[in-house]
Structures are given as C-alpha cells and as structure tokens.
C-alpha cells in the first residue's frame, strides 16, 4: 500500500517505527488512546521497549516525557488535541517549554474532525494557545507526505514542539519529495487577485476552491503553512503586496491561531484587508464534518465567496 492510500494515523505509527529504527532514543508515549493515535499495534508490537502507555494520565505523560528528554530521549506524546494541549497546558508550559526539554506533543483529531465525540472533545483552541507559548514550535501537516517530513524533522531537531495530527485518510497535496523547513511556508498555487492562507485540515479545501475560482477567471494565490510558529512572514507579505487582500481558513477558532498570526504580521508590516474563516468563537458539538463545515462557514463554497467579497472590497 502506498502512503497515498493510508490513514494519516497509520502513517504516524509507521513513521514512528522508521524513526525508532534509525534512533533508539525515539519513544512513543500514549495515554490510553494508542489505537486512536495509530501506534497500537504498529509501534507497540514492533518496538515494545520504545512504547510507554501511561494510562489516562496526560499530566504525568508530559512530565514523564520531560524527564525522559532530560536523559536524551525523544518522546512523541499523543492524545486527542483537547487532552494534549488544554488539559496539560501548565505541564507543557513549565516542564517542556520553560524547561526547554525536547518533547514532541501530538494532538490528534483536531477541530471538527473530532465529530463523534462532540463538544467536550472538540478543541478549537490548540493552535492559538500553543502558539502563544514561548519556545514552542507549532506544526499542522495536511497530508501523509508532509506528515512524514515534519516527523523526521521533529525527531532530528532539539525543539519543544506541538503538532496536530489529522487521523483519517486525507487528500494528497504533496508528494515524496516534500521537504519541511519550519521557517518556510509553501506556495501551492500562484495568483494575483487574492491570497488564501491555510494550514492542516483546510488546505485541501482551499486547493479545491482555487480550482473553481480559476474556472471563473479569478487567480487566487494559495499559501500553505506547515508551521504556524515559527511563521514565514516574508512569503505572506510578498503575496499580500501582490494581491492586496487575504483570506485565512482554519479548522480552529479565528482568535489567535492561523488567522491571528496572519493579522499580527500584516497589521504591523503591510495593512491589507483580511477575512478569517474558521470557528467564530464557539464550542463544538456532535456532528459530521460536513455539517460543522457548513455551520461554521469554512467549506469550499464559503472560501470561494470570501475570496470574491475580498476582491470586491479592494
């Protein structure tokens, strides 16, 4: 089976095994959600020594990871985004970011992809709160190839990091040759009428929107940010200078995440109009992804309409 046909979580497990093959210090930490993360049975059977299940104890998982990292280990700690970020925010702040320990935190099933578990588990804040933390890098890969590149980078660079992990099969945007540099965003399509900025889950939606806009003669420039922090300011500024308007789309609250990062940069360096699509300061609920996309206003049609509106405003 090629990576094209695999679930993201399966690729996460498989890639962890590859990383462990190269470096025995790479560890997989789980808090009773190993099947959900894609590491059980893949990692726990292939590398039982490198697999630690702490039970339903996320705070301990983060502290444990910090201690392991102090001894040269490279722990990847996974849980649903709500438990991997907001539940353990102080543990990550002090034992990982402040202490500068080489811990990799993986938040699975971000945003609306947490559908069946509903409002208690649906976290729209993780990009914003993790981005606000000094010393943290924050990544959100959109497909299997980007995920693999990001994970390889994480395993080979000393850097406290938070990564969102989409679990299902995702439309493929990149290919095997994709290389990851946290300081560089990727221009997926070139255009001059409007800039669309996406990360993670929303990138494939924007790819679709760009194609449809093209049919209507609208040239959208699509920038994909693998890394929300550090944030490639130059590419955004270059693009906004050319197009004069920006639409951001994220599977998160519009407060403080990708849209927030874009607005921070542009308001200081190149004030242009920005429309932020995403969750408009609301909690989630049990529902399908399509229902939530429609309800919260960031499906393909919403992106197309937002682009047209922004062009009119220029």
């Amino acid at each position: 089976m090629s990576y094209h046909d695999m679930e993201m979580r399966a690729v996460y497990g498989l890639t962890l095994c590859e990383l462990m093959e190269h470096d025995k210090n790479v560890l997989c930490l789980e808090a009773d959600l190993s099947k959900a993360s894609g590491t059980n049975p893949a990692v726990c059977t292939a590398f039982p020594e490198n697999f630690i299940n702490v039970g339903v104890a996320e705070a301990n998982m983060i502290g444990l990871a910090a201690g392991l990292a102090r001894e040269g280990k490279i722990p990847f700690c996974a849980s649903f985004t709500c438990f991997a970020s907001r539940r353990v925010y102080d543990q990550i702040t002090i034992s990982v970011a402040y202490a500068n320990t080489n811990v990799k935190i993986v938040g699975t099933a971000p945003g609306i992809t947490q559908g069946p578990n509903g409002g208690t588990h649906m976290d729209f804040l993780d990009l914003a709160i993790m981005r606000a933390m000094p010393n943290m890098h924050v990544y959100s890969p959109c497909d299997v190839y980007e995920l693999r590149a990001v994970m390889k980078y994480m395993a080979t660079h000393y850097q406290p990091t938070y990564m969102q992990l989409l679990r299902p099969k995702m439309p493929v945007v990149f290919n095997e040759s994709f290389t990851f540099d946290p300081n560089k965003a990727t221009k997926i399509s070139e255009g001059s009428d409007v800039t669309i900025v996406t990360t993670g889950y929303t990138t494939h939606l924007a790819v679709n929107a760009v194609e449809q806009l093209k049919k209507e003669g609208i040239k959208a420039e699509h920038l994909h940010y693998s890394s929300i922090k550090p944030f490639d300011e130059d590419l955004l500024i270059q693009s906004a200078k050319k197009t004069g308007c920006v639409v951001t789309v994220e599977n998160q609250t519009i407060i403080g995440g990708l849209g927030g990062a874009v607005c921070e940069v542009l308001s200081e360096k190149l004030p242009v109009k920005v429309k932020r699509l995403g969750i408009q300061d609301a909690f989630g609920e049990v529902a399908t992804e399509q229902y939530l996309l429609n309800k919260h206003g960031f499906n393909v049609e919403h992106i197309i309409n937002a682009c047209k509106d922004m062009i009119k405003c220029k």
Binding site: L64, G67, A69, E71
Partner: peptide, 24 residues
C-alpha cells in the same frame, strides 16, 4: 537536574529519568 516550581510536576519528571535509566 530538573526545573521545577509548578507543584506536582517534578515527580513525573523523576519517573521519566528513572525510566530512561532502565532503558539505557
């Protein structure tokens, strides 16, 4: 050996160090 201050966290870190000793 370990940054601490937010109470409750150091024992988890110590567990990590002890676990690493076993692995190593």
């Amino acid at each position: 050996d370990m940054t601490a201050g937010s109470l409750g966290q150091g024992l988890s870190c110590a567990c990590g160090m002890a676990y690493a000793a076993k692995l190593n």
